[in-house]
């Protein structure tokens, strides 16, 4: 069966994210990017499927693992690389860097490096949407570790209490830095979501952007009709070390077998035909973006105290 146009588009965005991050891996030893980087390789499909399901005007909040959401929201690549390299041409003039990519024109309203601190932001924006009857849906993407923070409970309780138009998306890579989920959580994520009365769905095939998209779209449609918040857990795999560009399967806190099993299903690795058809164009786009970013100067003294208040 030939692939649909939607499949090709989501494949392209996923591959774009992966190739952007592989470019970051290439560049990293040069110290052109002087900030921590949390790579999303392996997890691209979550952002891609979700963002495709959002309508113009909808909002999304994410974490320091922010590259995938930025690209999936349509963020400009030159502005992204310039941001990572600390240049004035960055989307945030170099003041944000890798951990704080934002792209309000595409709905990405911020990325926070304080775990779970953005969950109430999504709830607040959903409250504003309800007050204004704007019809917006707000999505919040967070890792499994976020659910251990107290503010997650406060936010879920309020969202449920006020029946706000918010979609909670747990990107479950079963790791927080080097700690496995079973050593951290005495609760099940499903039971937690259901405690607040959230309709809960789980996607095990977190590499499958089509499934993420189908489920997100149906869920977002439901939320837009006013049924209140919903919870989506997506199982996924983080390919690289928590922060930085290396592989760390050898150090003992996780096993390679489940990653290999994952790769055997990852469309970006398995669908060679689509890959081959897109890769040259994607790589050219990235090369041009990096060159344009490098041409942007560093911010000057006049930026140091700009935008404080």
């Amino acid at each position: 069966m030939p692939h649909t146009a939607a499949y090709r588009e989501m494949f392209r965005t996923s591959l774009l994210i992966r190739r952007v991050e592989e470019k970051i891996i290439d560049l990293y030893p040069s110290d052109k990017i002087q900030s921590p980087v949390h790579l999303s390789i392996g997890q691209e499909a979550v952002s891609v499927g979700l963002c495709r399901a959002l309508a113009p005007g909808d909002l999304v909040f994410g974490t320091y693992r922010s590259h995938a959401l930025y690209v999936a929201c349509g963020g400009d690549l030159t502005q992204m690389f310039a941001e990572l390299m600390g240049r004035i041409g960055g989307i945030s003039k170099g003041k944000a860097g890798s951990m704080h990519l934002a792209y309000p024109a595409g709905g990405l309203m911020g990325s926070s490096a304080v775990v779970a601190s953005h969950i109430p932001h999504a709830v607040g924006s959903a409250l504003a949407a309800k007050l204004h009857r704007s019809g917006q849906v707000v999505a919040c993407v967070f890792g499994d570790g976020s659910l251990e923070e107290g503010v997650a409970h406060e936010s879920f309780n309020y969202a449920a209490l006020k029946q706000l138009p918010v979609l909670f998306v747990c990107e479950n890579n079963a790791l927080a830095v080097h700690s496995r989920i079973d050593s951290r959580q005495a609760f099940s994520i499903e039971a937690m979501a259901r405690m607040y009365g959230f309709p809960y769905q789980r996607i095990d095939a977190g590499y499958d952007f089509e499934e993420v998209h189908r489920t997100s779209a149906a869920t977002i449609d439901a939320i837009r009709t006013g049924v209140g918040p919903q919870f989506l857990e997506v199982a996924t795999v983080r390919a690289k070390e928590h922060v930085g560009t290396g592989d760390d399967f050898g150090v003992g806190y996780r096993d390679r077998a489940s990653y290999d099993a994952w790769c055997a299903k990852d469309p970006l690795l398995q669908d060679r035909a689509t890959y081959d058809a897109l890769i040259a164009d994607i790589d050219a786009e990235i090369t041009a973006a990096v060159a344009a970013a490098e041409a942007s100067p560093a911010p000057g003294l006049e930026e140091l105290l700009t935008d404080v208040l």
């Binding site: 909002l59 909040f61 309203m109 911020g110 601190s117 953005h118 969950i119 109430p120 932001h121 999504a122 709830v123 607040g124 924006s125 959903a126 409250l127 504003a128 949407a129 007050l131 204004h132 704007s134 917006q136 707000v138 107290g150 503010v151 406060e154 936010s155 309780n157 309020y158 209490l161």
Partner: peptide, 27 residues
């Protein structure tokens, strides 16, 4: 809707204010 009691959630409530402000409400 405009003058509202809050649960005991000082941390979350302040985060909600951020989300409100980002979406056009003055909290």
């Amino acid at each position: 809707d405009r003058v509202s009691d809050m649960p005991l959630m000082e941390d979350g409530m302040t985060g909600i204010a951020v989300g409100l402000a980002l979406n056009g409400v003055y909290p």
